[in-house]
Write a protein that binds this DNA or RNA. Structure first.
Lengths: 339, 339
DNA sequence: TTGAAAGCGCTAACAC
DNA sequence: GTGTTAGCGCTTTCAA
């Protein structure tokens, strides 16, 4: 049924090797031979069997991308960037969702499902520093984010502390004095939540402002609902608020909604800034100030580094030392912190 | 380097076949043998080579999902549902982005990149009925959406005309008399835009309301910016509007923003309804009424049908006739059409 | 410049 | 219950 190299060779009256040479556009094929073979390929509609090629050559042209959930806008935009960048480099992307489940994240790394993948870009959300040993795998791996540092693999990360600090500084400059922060994780001292909280507090400290635990909104996840709920609890507690730093845009948008429901005007009464610079922040009402985490740069770096590792491995070279790549960020002021 | 069945067999002192039987949890293996083999598997850290399995068995356990862009919220949510459903059935998902480019969509179907995929779920946005011949492929294929009907493959679709009609009826019931529709494609008589426009017009006709072309907002794409731009043009033209049907939620949210910028109150002055029931419609201000297109049902049906086709094919059965599956929709009233 | 042939790791007849 | 073995389609030495 499927057309194989052999069929093409037979049709063209040449050997398998010659057909293979033509398919791979290698030199050392006489033009006349190439034409004949190409004609046979077209007539028969030959398409290479990638499983066979992959078995033989040890590379499939597929890279894995493991993330919590694609429907979360940040990860959707990240996945888009990774897919686009991978395509650029001749790779396709297979997506694994972990649902931010610790067990799923741990199993993922040993999953046979990744076996036809040349390498993995992994954005953990539940693993912690103590799981660093799990990252010791026998395939190229690039991790993203703030869960694990100094692992045995390349790592692409942004400076969360500095970026969060910049967000809170932006609110301070806009005149806020009672700044709530939404998205903290109770009792956690690592991961994005802890780092962004630290940046927030550094900004307060530097400005000589008191830290007030009543202004810290703790949440379980970073979805819209969590942001709205945390904001409502804060408002219900009666604490005074004139600025809100949402640790990501969905939290900030949930909080924004809760503020408006409570009859508070944004930005007149309360100013709000988020984090991620999602496309939708440009269209909400008011538009949402945010921190652009350099998503494109993260995706581009991760894919580039992974592909380099894949090629290094295939060439049998001694692996270069693992590196950490820090990408840049940028505060994007919009209406929600204006005036 | 990589541990193979042979290595495990050697270590356990049995044959390759027995190891294979254990791996596949087949019967006819003595418990004691199974234990020895399992121990060898664990010790050596054996993981099956999926390329080899795939080459041999003709199935990779991977299904392709081709869509315009995952960063568009509707497709992000669809991808999430497809991945979740596929995982349920033991498959992983490889994503191809077409960018809604006609050339990319056409090439995709013949792309060798799909070769290590067992089948494809394809959501075209640029193909049209005249491309129906391209859908004649030699692998299992399920198409989604409104671009092509009566193709040579299974097709999952919702009743766009009825759903759009329901949306406009909802506005009429809320008292709207001058209803704009945002998202039409100039000169197109097929695809979602044309079908939803027809549903909208049917609702007007049934209510004895005039069709007014000045109330039709034409756009290029269905992004937020397009919705905002179209709404601004409509308002600038001076035409009176008291209701807006956005052909999808992002268009509607863009339009919402433009209305608010123009000082019009929603829902008091103008009521707005979208289409897709994105998660974010529950958190915007005001929350956005929408039409739930049964995304989960679409994903579930598409994956189920595709997997059935894959198995049918593997079993060498005569293919059952191709079918069209129509999923259900539901109007979801929220604040933007209240009152 | 082209051909012959080995073998990547696995599955599934078919033997025993 | 378990072992032997022939390929799946391809890449790649090695020879010619």
């Amino acid at each position: 049924m499927a057309v194989t190299l052999r069929d093409v060779a037979q049709r063209a009256g040449v050997s398998i090797k010659t057909v293979s040479n033509v398919v791979h556009k290698r030199q050392y094929v006489k033009d006349s031979t190439r034409d004949i073979v190409q004609a046979a390929i077209d007539e028969l509609g030959y398409r290479p069997n990638l499983s066979a090629r992959s078995l033989r050559s040890g590379r499939s042209g597929v890279i894995g991308l493991a993330l919590p959930e694609v429907r979360l806008p940040y990860f959707a935009e990240l996945a888009d960037s990774v897919i686009t960048e991978a395509k650029q480099r001749g790779h396709t992307v297979l997506i694994e969702q972990t649902g931010a489940e610790p067990a799923a994240e741990r199993e993922l790394l040993r999953s046979p499902r990744l076996q036809l993948t040349d390498g993995l870009i992994f954005s953990p959300l539940a693993l912690s520093q103590s799981d660093v040993g799990l990252l010791e795998v026998d395939y190229p791996l690039v991790t993203l984010g703030e869960r694990i540092f100094d692992g045995p693999c390349d790592h692409v990360v942004m400076d969360n502390v500095a970026a969060a600090r910049a967000a809170t500084e932006h609110l301070l400059e806009a005149g806020c004095r009672r700044i709530a922060v939404i998205g903290a994780h109770e009792g956690e001292d690592q991961g994005s939540a802890a780092l962004r909280l630290r940046g927030h507090q550094e900004a307060l400290d530097a400005a000589g402002m008191p830290r007030d635990d009543r202004l810290v909104g703790y949440v379980g996840l970073w979805h819209r609902q969590d942001g709205a709920d945390a904001m409502r609890r804060l408002l219900a507690s009666g604490v005074e608020v004139d600025g809100v730093f949402g640790m990501n845009d969905t939290l900030a948008l949930g909080a924004l909604r809760a503020l408006q429901d409570a009859g508070l005007a944004v930005p007149e009464g309360v100013k709000v800034i988020g984090f991620d610079d999602l496309e939708e922040t440009r269209y909400t009402s008011p538009t949402l100030s945010s921190v652009d985490p350099g998503r494109m740069e993260i995706a581009r770096t991760a894919v580039r580094v992974l592909v380099e590792r894949i090629e290094e491995r295939l060439a049998g070279e001694t692996p270069a030392p693992r590196r950490q790549y820090t990408t840049s960020y940028r505060v994007v002021p919009r209406e929600s912190t204006a005036g």
